[in-house]
Design a protein around this nucleic acid. Structure first.
Lengths: 126, 126, 126, 126
DNA sequence: GTGGTCTAGACCACC
DNA sequence: GTGGTCTAGACCACG
């Protein structure tokens, strides 16, 4: 089951987008699998301390992308074919890797300094 | 002089925040120095394809942080003391490194996989 | 409840400032009282035929002056202590009276002509 | 000759519009007469402590309204027929009187209180 | 439905 | 030419 306690919402991006991204990352990590049941809107909104509508918007967007299925008034389930999973993985890795490389290079760091920075913060996080 | 052609605005974050971040990264990299002249609102907005007001908001925020100075009718200039530069550097490294480490770990990558990803994309960027 | 239908916006001053002034005048007149509910951004902007943001700016300024309170997702309310009301009254009377006296004197009217002008237009207004 | 030392520019309206209004009021008062020479842009801008462009804009607008004539590179002169003067007078009195009556009534003052306020401030002004 | 923010375009005053 | 402000419209989070 995907762990939402690591979603800190301190990103600057819209909250609903952060929820979507978190679920996609879980899929790439393998902690979210095809057929898994998602927490209800009420439960997740309480957990994150946000409005149920915000969770609803995230779920609705994911459903439009075909990554989850919701039966009205009922629970939502993950719908992940291998193809879709691969596409999500490529999208996320590409986006994140490009962003971090651009960031570090714009700050004038060398490749080795960048890797060393990764080491430093890899330990710090929980 | 800071190069704004590498600012691609594909980030999801507010445009004005991306402009601020870009300038701060330039300061950390040393391509933006105390006393440097900033491109005018109109010039930079035309270059980025955004509204002059969006650039204005970025500049105004930077001025409130004390990193640049503006006077009506005259150009805007960078105002960077060593102390402020160090603070900006710490802020950026912390933020960027934490974000990337969190992203990669949530996707289940190991530390070595993360570094290898850095290698892959380091060459790709212009 | 304050009547916004008498706010005609033909003044030359910024619209948001006219909204502020109208509300302050209502407070002085006693038609706006502590605890009163303000019309929402959308309602008032539609009534005046302006953008919701213009109303927002008026409300936000009033909030910074401590004359109203707003909370996200909820209505906005008037917050008028006796002290603040007295201050607003003094401010408005001073400003308006000085402006009209300056205007009429610059046009070469005598005091009696000025008063007679008041009489003429007092009846005309709705 | 029109006295510009009484133009205080504390109005909130655009400066160029205040200059126009001041000249029109002078015409109504009779201190500005047909054929009078206006102060040069340089002199008036220095006197008011504003930019020459701002005075230029006021003069240009007045010229477009036909109230003054300027010969390029030379001085500007007042051009006031009796008809135009009457029109200006009506416009100003109407505007100012309506504004003050609206202001005082919105604050809940009676007609007598309004006149008494006029008395109070008539003495205060220089 | 509510208020809050970001982006956009026009206008103002200044050098 | 420069920066500063006002108005406008769309989107976000919240009750």
């Amino acid at each position: 089951m995907l762990d939402f306690t690591t979603l800190t919402l301190d990103d600057g991006a819209p909250i609903y987008a952060q929820i979507i991204r978190h679920i996609k990352r879980g899929a790439v990590a393998g902690t979210v699998r095809d057929g898994d049941e998602l927490p209800s809107r009420r439960v997740l909104s309480a957990l994150l301390g946000v409005n149920p509508n915000t969770v609803q918007k995230a779920y609705r967007t994911l459903e439009e992308e075909g990554l989850i299925v919701s039966h009205t008034g009922a629970k939502s389930y993950v719908a992940l074919t291998d193809d879709r999973l691969a596409a999500v993985r490529d999208e996320l890795l590409e986006t994140d890797a490009r962003a971090v490389v651009a960031a570090l290079r714009q700050m004038g760091l060398s490749r080795d300094e960048a890797k060393s920075l990764i080491d430093t913060y890899w330990e710090v996080e929980p």
